[in-house]
Simulated assay, not measured.
Amino acid sequence: MGKSDDKAKQIPYKMLENDAYSKWLGIQILDVKEGYCQLKMQIRKDMLNSMKKAHGGITYALADTAFGFACNTYGKKAVSIESSINHIEALEEGDILIAESDVKSQKNKLGFYIVEIKKDNQLVALFKGVTYRTNVDWEI
């Protein structure tokens, strides 16, 4: 593994360390490589809506975090400029989710990413995001 691979892996951990909301969600990093991040999270009672299902914002937040971590693995600070989500299945307290963010196209400034959120290997949400990469380097 080269030096850039090491930095790519370190950036999401640094981001999570400084992200109070993602920590509150209980997000864990499972895998990282350049342009890719896999996260895990469990739905808790305080994440449910009035219908006793996971609030859509919880799934969105997990996907957005995976997206943000993946697009920053190139060493430059990157920010979301557009994103959307399709909720496919309702989620319950105790459900364990795996979010996989993968780059589909990364140009000099703009990148397009897909995040698949699965429960027991079944797709439960699909997130699409566009990122803008700045000229600011991550300091690790």
Rank of each mutant, 00 (worst) to 15 (best):
K3F: 00
K3Q: 09
S4F: 07
S4W: 09
D5R: 07
D6W: 00
K7M: 02
K9H: 06
K9L: 05
K9M: 08
Q10P: 03
P12W: 00
Y13K: 15
M15W: 07
S22H: 04
S22I: 00
S22D: 11
L25D: 10
G26Q: 08
G26L: 03
I27Q: 00
I27V: 05
Q28M: 09
Q28I: 07
D31P: 08
V32R: 02
K33P: 07
E34N: 12
Y36I: 01
C37S: 02
C37R: 00
C37T: 03
L39Q: 02
K40D: 06
K40Y: 06
M41R: 07
M41G: 07
Q42V: 11
Q42M: 10
I43D: 02
I43E: 05
M47F: 15
L48M: 13
L48Y: 05
N49P: 01
S50M: 09
S50W: 05
K52W: 14
K53H: 11
A54Y: 02
A54N: 08
H55F: 15
I58V: 13
I58K: 00
I58T: 09
Y60C: 14
A61K: 01
L62H: 05
L62R: 05
D64F: 01
T65F: 03
T65Q: 06
F67D: 14
G68D: 04
C71L: 04
N72F: 01
N72V: 02
N72C: 04
T73R: 03
K76S: 11
K77F: 13
K77V: 15
A78D: 04
I85N: 11
I88N: 09
I88G: 08
E89I: 10
E89L: 14
E92D: 12
E92V: 08
L97V: 03
A99N: 04
S101C: 09
V103D: 07
V103A: 06
K104D: 09
S105Y: 11
Q106E: 15
Y113T: 08
I114E: 15
V115I: 13
K118L: 12
Q122R: 10
L123T: 04
V124F: 00
V124T: 10
A125L: 08
K128F: 10
G129M: 02
V130N: 11
T131I: 11
R133V: 14
N135G: 11
V136G: 04
D137Q: 06
W138S: 01
E139Y: 09
I140V: 13
